[in-house]
Amino acid sequence: MIFYDCPTAPSPRRARMFIAEKGLDIETRNISIADGEQMSPAFLKVNPRATVPVLITDKGTVLSENVAIATYIEAMHPEPPLLGRTADEKGLVAMWNAIAEAQGGMAVAEAFRNAHPAMKGRALPGPLDLPQIPELAERGRKRVAAFFDLLDARLSETPWLAGEAFSMADITAFVFTDFARVVKMRPAEDHAATQDWLERMRARPSAAL
């Protein structure tokens, strides 16, 4: 397998943490988004959508989405399970992972890409150059705040996002919660359940990657 990573971006970090939680050592090639390497002819041959992460499987299949990468790795290396064991657990992991992506990750991205000077003309990932829309940045910040409230409400009910066991959903929510620092947003200190969860997440060796 070959893993295409970018140490500074949140989406590859999700895959990097998933791989680490599985205890795997995969050949890694770093792609610098800051230097525009995702747009290089060499990388576009790997992934024409110009995004990371990418995993090339042992059979040469190109997987360029976190869910796809996680699904493949879980099938090849089922222990420890990160996508759930029972049908109900699998459903909850998929649901909360999707919620964390749509209501957390996309909100942070909306706020960041539509306001940060480094993202000028790059309001969306991928090969298209698109202008920033300041109104979307403000909307994104409101969505991030709403996600933090949702996260704390859920974690007040369960120790981990999808239930009793640590899962991919926790990785996704943690990475995007941490990345919210780029728009100067953090979960409130009085969100006790979230703060406890963050402490447990940061204690995991994969969180340092």
Rank of each mutant, 00 (worst) to 15 (best):
T28R: 07
F176E: 13
E37L: 04
S206I: 00
S40D: 09
F166Q: 01
P127N: 02
E101G: 05
V175S: 07
A188C: 08
E157V: 10
A9P: 04
E79R: 12
M76I: 10
P41A: 02
R29V: 14
M76C: 13
A203L: 01
A50F: 09
R181N: 05
G104V: 08
T172F: 07
R49I: 12
V182I: 06
M201C: 00
R16A: 07
E37G: 03
H191M: 13
E110W: 07
V54M: 02
F18M: 02
E138H: 13
I133K: 07
G121A: 04
I19K: 03
G91A: 11
A180T: 06
P78D: 03
V182Y: 03
G104K: 02
T158S: 15
R200G: 02
L128P: 00
P131Q: 09
W96Y: 04
I73V: 03
D190G: 09
L92M: 15
P81Q: 10
F147W: 03
Y4P: 02
E21M: 00
M17F: 09
P131T: 00
T61Y: 11
I19W: 03
F43W: 12
V62R: 15
I31H: 08
G60N: 02
V183T: 05
M119G: 00
E110V: 08
F43R: 08
E157Q: 15
T158G: 10
P131I: 05
D170F: 02
N47C: 03
A173W: 11
G60C: 08
R202G: 07
E199V: 08
T71Q: 14
A100N: 04
M168F: 11
I26P: 00
A192V: 10
L136V: 14
R139F: 11
A20T: 10
D5C: 12
R122I: 11
D178K: 15
V54H: 05
D170V: 02
L82D: 00
S11D: 09
A145I: 10
V183R: 03
A94Y: 11
V144C: 11
G91I: 11
F174H: 04
